[in-house]
Amino acid sequence: MEIVSTQRQKIHPHKFTLWIAIASIIMMFAGLTSAYIVKGSLPGWSTVEMPKIFYYSTGVMLISSLTIQVALKSFKERSMQQYRRLITLTAILGFLFITFQIIGFRQLAHSGVQLSGGSGAGQFLYIIFGLHALHVLGGAIALLVMFIRAFSTRIRNYNAVPVEVVSTYWHFVDLLWIYLFVFFLLK
């Protein structure tokens, strides 16, 4: 049984894969934000005023990070009732976040920030926030899958790895959002 004990100390391959994937996603957004910086020093740059609703979506994102953390804790303590409630709440908050983003985009469009013709902060904002929202959507879909699994009576599942993977990813999109939000506020 020595093999098992030495391998137990290692991080689970799926979790490890997630960390590399996170590095990869970071590189993608690093590429985009550095493109923003390069572009910002060129003539013809236009700035954008951040719609207020993005502050609310930041709040939603932070709360959802909290709920998924508690969900993971209650899963590990086997209090499945609470786990189900919290994971549902997190998924709802995820979709609420995406709705807020769409409303924010609409407000920007109404205030005259268009994709066509321009190449200033506004256009970058649409693309960068849009890509981030896609990543949140991916996480929310993963949450939905876990939600269905948690209510299934057929499979009894006490393996914490998928829950840990999703919660790590969720914290990551949260942090990524805070980075992007602050980035656009400061620029």
Partner: peptide, 14 residues
Amino acid sequence: GVLSFPVLLSGFIL
């Protein structure tokens, strides 16, 4: 590959 291809993807998205 994992660290450089995403940057190409950003370029392609723009």
